[in-house]
Structure formats: C-alpha cells, structure tokens
C-alpha cells in the first residue's frame, strides 16, 4: 500500500540527486508544488523527463536542478518560449543542459513500453525528420511479419515519477479524471512514484472517465491542496492562464526569475 506522507518527506525520500525524474501532467494536473519542493531541497544533476517541459521545468532548469532534459515540446502553451530553457540551451545558464529530443508520439510510446515491461516501443514516427540524427534513441526496425520499416524508441524507466491527482483514499488508491495525459503510464513505468492529491478521503465516489492507480502500485501519496497551481485540477480549480501569461516577463531575465523563486518557492516554504 502507498504510504501517506508529507510533501517534504515524500520528496526527501523518493527524489535523489542524479535521478531520472518524470513530472507528468498534460497541461492539466501538473505537480507544481512537488516541483517547488524539489527546488527547495536543492536537488542536483537530475535528468528531467517530460513530454511538455512547460513552466514547471523552466523553473527547475532555471533553479539549476537539471543536467539533462528528455522531452518533446518545450514551450509556454499559448504564450511563447520558455526563457529559462532557452537560456540554458543557448548560454549554458545556470549550467549546461543536455537535450534528448523526441516527438509526442515517441515519448508517449516510450512510457507505454516502460509501463509494459518491454525494452522498446514501435511506432510509425520520426521518418524523414532530422530528429533521429541527434540521438541514438530513435532507430529504424524491420517488422518481422511484413518487412516494413518502422521506428523503435527505448522504454522510459524513470527512477521516480511524480504526478498530481484529484483524490486518494487512506490506502493510497488514487483517482484522477479529466485530461489524464500519460500519467498512468509514467507512474507504472517508474521504479518509485509520488502522487500529490487535492484531498485524501475515507472513500471516493466513482467519476465518469476516471483513471485509478491502485495503492499497491504507488509508492507514496501526499495531500497537497492546490498542488497543481497554476495548472489545475478538474473539479477543484481552474487553470490560472494569467500566471502563464505573466511568466513570460518573470522568466525573461535572470534576476527577475531569481527573485520570483526566492519569494514564491524558498520563502513560501513547503505546504503544511
């Protein structure tokens, strides 16, 4: 059964320096509070994995937690570029950032392979693009039945995956709904997992379209109401679009970014 923990303890025990860490959530249910706790605890040399390293990874990269990024789309959705990500790639600030770049279809299938206990996934993808020229993790493969050439990508097996969900019960059974992205696959692909939730309840009611992560498949659950902000939790909060728009100016310069992290991550402290 998943252990019920505080956010501080969950990150302290499950996220380690040098880990391959996936924080997932496709626009919805992004585990921002956990990302901030990783920054507060000063984690270093992380390989950050995420399909859409949007504002949350901009913060982790700018704070110097990351050595390497494995991703498929690095922008601020509907707003523009990620300035901390760009600064790291273009000027190695605050430290160099290695990239391994994929398409969404490739990343999604890499998680599926990891969750399925397979060494790789196969898809129709990447063909004719320049992406395979920049990583050895995209390779052609011949179908043994038809002879057709397809594309293989290796399984993702994060040391730890962190996601946010709406609810868990006291046995750590996790319930999420709305846009659930690739979170189930990312949790099942990982060696350890931490799920932050809006609330822990005695018993939850089923919701149409829900995804359930059984407590015995999750390492730890932490109750962190509002832990997805400025992303959102369907049924609990709405996306703070103004935050995403304002992030463009906050993140554009190193000093305004540092001041923001100082104020809103370090001084704010961990949620009680």
């Amino acid at each position: 059964m998943a252990k019920l923990v505080s956010l501080t303890d969950g990150v302290a025990h499950l996220v380690r320096d040098g880990d391959v860490v996936a924080l997932e959530g496709f626009t919805h249910l992004i585990p921002f509070a956990a990302g901030h706790e990783i920054i507060r605890q000063g984690r270093q040399d992380l390989t950050l994995v995420r399909m859409t390293p949007d504002v949350i990874y901009d913060q982790l990269i700018g704070a110097g937690c990351a050595r390497r990024l494995v991703f498929s789309w690095g922008g601020n959705p509907g707003v523009g570029s990620l300035h901390r990500f760009r600064d790291a790639v273009q000027h190695a600030w605050p430290r160099p950032l290695e990239l391994e770049e994929h398409s969404h279809a490739g990343m999604a299938n890499r998680y599926v392979a990891g969750a399925s206990g397979l060494p790789f996934a196969v898809l129709r993808g990447y063909t004719g693009t320049d992406l395979p020229g920049h990583t050895t993790n995209i390779r052609p493969i011949t179908c043994p039945f038809t002879g057709e050439t397809l594309t293989a990508v290796p399984a993702l097996r994060p040391d730890v995956t962190v996601v946010h969900a709406q609810r868990a019960d006291r046995n750590g059974n996790v319930q999420m709904w709305g846009i659930t992205g690739v979170q189930k696959e990312a949790v099942l692909a990982a060696h350890r997992s931490l799920v932050t939730v809006e609330e822990i309840v005695d018993e939850w009611e089923p919701v149409p379209g829900q995804v359930v992560l059984p407590g015995w498949a999750v390492t730890a659950v932490a109750e962190v109401p509002g832990g997805a902000h400025p992303s959102y939790a369907h049924g609990y909060s709405v996306r703070d679009n103004d935050f995403y728009r304002d992030w463009d100016a906050v993140s554009r310069h190193r000093d305004t970014f540092r001041a923001w992290v100082d104020e809103h991550v370090h001084k704010a402290g961990a949620p009680a």
Binding site: T52, F71, S72, W73, G74, G75, S81, L82, F85, R86, V89, Q90, E101, H102, S103, H104, A105, L123, R124, G125, Y126, T129, L131
Partner: peptide, 12 residues
C-alpha cells in the same frame, strides 16, 4: 541561435 519549442505532435 534560437532554441524553439521542438516537435510536439507535429512530425506524426
């Protein structure tokens, strides 16, 4: 010179 967001779903 300029790092853009990347591929997303576009290649497929």
């Amino acid at each position: 010179t300029v790092r853009l967001p990347g591929a997303g779903g576009a290649p497929e």
